[in-house]
Amino acid sequence: MLRLEGVNQFYGESHILWDLDLEVPEGECTCLMGRNGVGKTTLLKAVMGLLPVRSGSIRFDGRELAGRPAELRARLGIGYVPQGREIFPQLTVEENLRVGLGIRGPRARRIPGRVFELFPVLGEMLNRRGGDLSGGQQQQLAIGRALVLEPRLLILDEPNEGIQPNIVHQIGAVIRRLNREEGLTVLLVEQKLPFARRTAHRFNLVEKGRSVASGAIGQLDDTLVGRYLAV
């Protein structure tokens, strides 16, 4: 569904992504992993059109995205949950969720009911400002906002960062349900190895901006963990 080939990206003169390849098969959950600062978030921002790439191909369902405007991704069915959530703190929960409706077109007027089915707390706090929610509730709101788009591909950048364990468990259950029961394709950046092994079908390891290993999640052995993930 999503394929990156030979992607290079720079910050000024600093070469961040080096001929990076990545494939996210349709209907599966792929976990992008690596130590802090190796380029994972940069890669996701490049996919979303938030950062330009110097060269290489980013294709979604065969359609080239590199060089195209960022808003095209949402229209094609890509939902994005950025690191740090980036909700609108002064807007209510309902207003945050409604932000995505306009992208779906003039006929989209209702927030999909499954958002509240997956995250009941959002339905209970519709009139509360986003900035007044706990960190875990804000993360649920950020995921719910992406799901309002009714995406075919959901991209999440460290959704469990700074979240209490019970919410981590709930988010994991939601991701597995969306992926395995509803067929939603997922690209996940995650540092927690047990969570990745419970949730993902495949992994891709990044080191210094390069893709260094990939395969089925069961192939993520102690040697690879020690070489590319251990601190």
Results as ranks from 00 to 15, higher is better:
178 L>P: 01
14 S>I: 14
160 N>R: 03
89 P>M: 13
131 G>T: 03
166 N>L: 14
152 R>K: 15
228 Y>V: 10
6 G>W: 06
83 Q>M: 05
179 N>S: 14
23 E>F: 06
70 A>F: 07
160 N>G: 04
84 G>D: 08
191 Q>D: 09
146 A>R: 07
33 M>G: 12
56 G>K: 07
140 Q>C: 09
127 N>E: 13
214 S>Q: 13
215 G>N: 03
140 Q>W: 12
64 E>H: 09
57 S>W: 04
153 L>P: 03
127 N>H: 13
80 Y>E: 10
226 G>K: 10
22 L>T: 01
125 M>Y: 04
27 G>A: 10
187 L>Y: 00
161 E>R: 04
171 I>D: 00
228 Y>S: 07
165 P>Q: 08
129 R>H: 14
192 K>C: 00
146 A>L: 11
140 Q>D: 05
147 L>H: 05
96 N>E: 06
47 V>G: 02
47 V>N: 03
169 H>V: 14
128 R>P: 00
185 T>R: 04
84 G>A: 12
20 L>M: 08
5 E>L: 12
87 I>K: 00
91 L>S: 02
210 R>F: 05
189 V>G: 12
25 P>R: 09
200 A>D: 01
44 L>Y: 00
186 V>M: 04
166 N>K: 14
126 L>Q: 11
76 L>A: 09
35 R>I: 05
172 G>P: 02
15 H>L: 13
5 E>G: 03
31 C>S: 12
189 V>K: 03
145 R>T: 08
202 R>G: 01
231 V>K: 13
62 G>Y: 08
203 F>N: 00
184 L>F: 09
83 Q>Y: 06
206 V>A: 05
34 G>S: 06
158 E>K: 05
151 P>Y: 08
150 E>R: 14
223 T>R: 15
23 E>P: 03
105 G>R: 05
20 L>P: 01
14 S>V: 15
1 M>C: 10
67 G>R: 06
19 D>E: 14
180 R>E: 15
19 D>V: 02
168 V>K: 08
50 L>M: 14
105 G>D: 09
165 P>W: 06
46 A>S: 15
110 R>V: 03
127 N>P: 00
119 F>W: 08
118 L>M: 11
103 I>D: 02
151 P>S: 09
26 E>A: 11
117 E>G: 07
103 I>N: 03
99 V>E: 02
137 Q>E: 15
35 R>C: 04
11 Y>A: 08
109 R>M: 07
47 V>S: 03
213 A>M: 10
113 G>D: 15
46 A>L: 01
197 R>C: 10
201 H>P: 08
9 Q>D: 00
214 S>H: 15
144 G>V: 06
10 F>T: 02
73 R>N: 14
1 M>V: 13
17 L>D: 01
